[in-house]
Each structure stands twice: as C-alpha cells, then as structure tokens.
Computed example of a mutant assay.
Amino acid sequence: MTQIANADTRTRLLDAAAEQVAATPGEDISLRAICAQAGVKMPTLYHFFGSKQGLLDAVVERGFDLYLAEKGAHEPSGDPIQDLRDGWDAHVAFGIANPGFYTLMYGQVHPGHAPEAQERPSAMLRALTQAAADQGRLTVPPDQAAAHILVANIGVTLRQIILAEEDRALSVAVREGAIAAITGTAATGNRHAEIHRVLEYAAANPDILGAAETQLLTKWLRTLAESS
C-alpha cells in the first residue's frame, strides 16, 4: 500500500507540474503552486524529485513520452529520406501544439548537459540517416546528417513558437534545404550534385524502374559519384 501511495503522490506532483508547464509556456514554474495542487508540502516534492531541476527533468521525460507516442502513430514509408521529411513535420507539429513541453525539451540550454530522454528521438533519427547512408544516398556521415537535420528542425520549430504562428512555407523550405545538403543535391551546375540528384530520385521512386534495376542504377551512380 505504501508503494502505491508513493506512486500516486509522485504522479500527482508530476501531473501538476506538467499542467503548469503546459499552461504557462516559457515561464518559471512555482513549486508552491504545484505542491498546493497536489495537496502536499514542499518537503514531499523534494523527497520524490530531489530538486526543482529533478522535477523539470521528469516533466521533460513526460514530454518526450508524449512526443514519441505521437510519432509512433505514424507508419514508416519504407523510404528513409521520406521518413526524415515526415519526422521533421511531426517534430514541428508537436512543438507548435505543445510549446510548454517543447521549450523545456529543446529550448532551455545548459552547457554540457542534455536531458537523457532527448537521446531516444535522436537515436531514431540516426537510424534513418544510417539507413539512407546504407542506400548510398548521403554525401556526409550519418551522424553528421542527423545533427544537421535536428538543429535545423529545432530552429524552425522554436521560431514558430516565438512568433506564436505556423509558417509552413518556411518549414518546408528549410527542411528541403537540409535534405538537399545531406544528400548532395543542393548545388547547381555541379556534376557530383547532378549524379546525386538522379540517384536520389531513383532511390525515392523504385517502382519506376523496378527494384533490381534501381539497385543496379544506384550502384553505377555511386561509382560515378565517387570518381567525379
């Protein structure tokens, strides 16, 4: 019974903190207000979370749980580059819909510290860039590609939160620019870029030539790209 009561008390405190964060995006939380809402005294909060930062870390983890649950509801397309696009859009949509959680998850920077929960979506992103690299569709290492996508995605999302309005055109433009940069299709009048544009189009549309033919063409194009 004691364990159940403790879990219930911790949950009430976390619920109260999450509600306050959601209701007042970007503002400092009031520990006294959280304790009052949960019906406990301040020492109880410190017993469960250790400090104000401990409570915020727990709220951040809940934010990532919510974010990943929403992302998990989307079926992967089977194309890692298209899945990067879909993941980008889901990231922006979550931030706009949940500015309180998002600003804690990605907007509050502490040098040398990143929330442990942040690693979960980052690992999913790296898995996509690794899959794209395995298909020969990246011109940078997969870890660098993942970092490129993430920092651009965060920047676009935070800008829209700051402006308190969606800017779909900006999001799409930055998204496509980031993808062009990691796939080597951004430059014009460049033989290497032209090869990668054809490679990317073939890989993204395997039904046009057929799976076997697309695989062979991809192999030839990669050879040409490496020699150019």
Results as ranks from 00 to 15, higher is better:
Gln82Ala: 15
Thr2Asn: 15
Ala114Asp: 13
Met105Trp: 01
Ile4Glu: 14
Gly54Phe: 01
Leu104Ala: 06
Arg120Asp: 14
Met42Leu: 09
Ala180Lys: 11
Glu75Val: 14
Ile161Met: 11
Ala181Pro: 07
Tyr106Ser: 12
Pro206Val: 04
His74Pro: 14
His148Phe: 12
Leu125Lys: 05
Asn205Trp: 03
Gly26Ile: 05
Gln53Asp: 14
Pro111Asp: 03
Glu166Cys: 07
Ala203Val: 12
Glu119Tyr: 15
Val140Lys: 02
Leu138Arg: 04
His110Gln: 15
Val174Gln: 02
His47Ser: 01
Gln82Tyr: 15
Asp65Phe: 00
Leu104Glu: 03
Leu68Thr: 10
Gln135Ile: 03
Glu70Gln: 08
Ala117Phe: 05
Ala131Cys: 03
Ser77Arg: 11
Leu221Met: 00
Leu56Asn: 01
Leu221Gln: 07
Asp207Asn: 13
Gln144Tyr: 12
Ala211Lys: 13
Val59Ile: 00
Lys71Asn: 13
Arg175Val: 03
Leu216Arg: 10
Gly54Ser: 05
Thr183Ala: 10
Leu68Lys: 01
Met1Arg: 14
Val60Asp: 10
Ala152Asn: 15
Gly26Lys: 01
Arg197Ser: 11
Ala181His: 01
Phe94Lys: 10
Thr9Arg: 14
Arg159Phe: 10
Asp134Gln: 11
Gly184Trp: 12
Gly210Thr: 03
Glu165Ile: 05
Arg12Gln: 08
Leu217Gly: 04
Glu166Ile: 13
Ala152Ile: 14
Leu163Phe: 08
Asp28Met: 13
Thr103Glu: 11
Ala133Cys: 04
Ala18Met: 07
Gly107Ser: 00
Ala5Asn: 09
Arg191Asn: 09
